[in-house]
Design a protein around this nucleic acid. Structure first.
Ligand SMILES: [Mn+2]
Ligand SMILES: [Mn+2]
Ligand SMILES: [Mn+2]
Ligand SMILES: [Mn+2]
Lengths: 224, 224
DNA sequence: ACAAATTTTTAGATTTGTCTAAAATATATT
DNA sequence: AATATATTTTAGACAAATCTAAAAATTTGT
């Protein structure tokens, strides 16, 4: 039997923080790590993790740190989905710059209305990535960050391993060979030209400039 | 010297309630009236009005009820402006019905971002009325509900006194005469046809059906 | 004008979310 | 293995926002 608890804004923020901390490093998330992430005191964290454990959102054993339960993960992904959809909205519809959206999205992510989020998703054309290139969890909690994606879709400064091509025509493959771009190569996106979407990339020890046409036909998997 | 206090969500809701209560009946707003409006206890109201008085948002004297100060009125209008702009957004951009928007707007009105509201206003084309026909306060706190407005712009079921015409051409005025519509007449909007925007109205003791063309050229002042 | 009824305020308790200081436990060092 | 250090938990306090019950002030009715 599944109980539906109301989650407070604070509880939602803790779940999100725990999710992000658990993503890097597969061990249990420590009290102090949460405290640092939330800019609060370890004693406050202890209080909160007890409440979250009570509600079945996390597994908690004294001195042993915490991990998300199924429901906890689902709740965290739901908040992250809302946060990132709102970020897309702010950039695409409200003329916000990508460095202005986070603070407002931190507020908007707590608005409770399933219909609003569904409509937002639709209005934005069901985007898969937020303005920073981060994957938007799907409505049913799907979240495969390891999936391959186009080089045009990864965040600035991030690095991906080349794992495939979308266009496998002879001219495109010949271009890749001629420019020494091969599967397995590590590519870092250094900068993006607003004007034409072309990318400055670092590939191995050399840097180069490639058109949006090229970048949008290369699949990469994000590193780390 | 003007101090800028942070207003909590609860304080904002109280200010809004006090504003709405003060609008009808020009006496001081009583503790029990606020308690009823906010669905809370009079003792809670007393606690809160002390805080709001402390912050300079209301005038409060024991047993004498409260009234908004300049800053209090400004703060209340700012919340109402946000509420109504979000309601327009939900109906115009998110396919919400006009009876579905209030609950979500109650949440969205507390989002803090001046830029977001400015952009929202722009995206919506600087609307003057919300989906229920209620006036949207302007950014600088202008809010003249007694201003004349077009018959097409007032809420369903509301009554206005006919105070002028937008089109003063001979054919239009002749039409009004022929149909016994005159300045000073009271008109109640009974229903609106979604299809062509035509209105079913009550005028004096008779009811009639007028086209959007007619209605959008008649100015009324809302009664009460 | 005075008693009765109503409204408002106070006093004290509760919940959420936070804090500081001290105690308990776990980890690192010799 | 014992000790020192770091982490975590507990205990107790506090502010915000609410409640109930009782006291105080106002308003109403005769
Ligand atoms: Mn963000
Ligand atoms: Mn983001
Ligand atoms: Mn509303
Ligand atoms: Mn409205």
């Amino acid at each position: 039997m599944l109980k539906l608890f109301f989650m407070t804004r604070s509880e939602e923020n803790y779940l999100k923080a725990i999710f992000h901390l658990a993503r890097k490093g597969n061990k249990a998330v420590t009290t102090s790590a949460i405290a640092e992430q939330m800019d609060t005191k370890p004693s406050s964290v202890t209080d909160m993790v007890k409440r979250l454990a009570e509600k079945g959102m996390i597994n908690y054993r004294k001195y042993q740190g915490v991990s998300l339960t199924k429901e906890g993960r689902k709740a965290a992904l739901s908040i992250i989905r809302k946060h990132r959809l709102w970020e897309v909205f702010l950039v695409e519809k409200m003329d916000f710059a990508w460095d202005e959206v986070h603070e407002v999205a931190e507020q908007l992510e707590h608005i409770k209305s399933e219909k609003l989020i569904d409509q937002l998703d639709k209005l934005l054309g069901f985007p898969r990535y937020d303005p920073h290139g981060d994957l938007i969890p799907s409505k049913d909690g799907e979240f495969d960050e390891t999936a391959k994606r186009l080089l045009t879709e990864i965040p600035l400064k991030s690095t991906g391993v080349c794992v495939g091509v979308r266009d496998s025509s002879v001219p495109f493959l010949k271009f890749l060979d001629k420019n020494n771009i091969a599967l397995g190569d590590e590519i870092t996106v250094l900068d993006k030209e607003e004007f034409d979407g072309s990318l400055h990339i670092q590939i191995g020890d050399r840097s180069m400039h490639i058109s949006d046409q090229i970048a949008s036909n290369l699949y990469v998997k994000l590193k780390e």
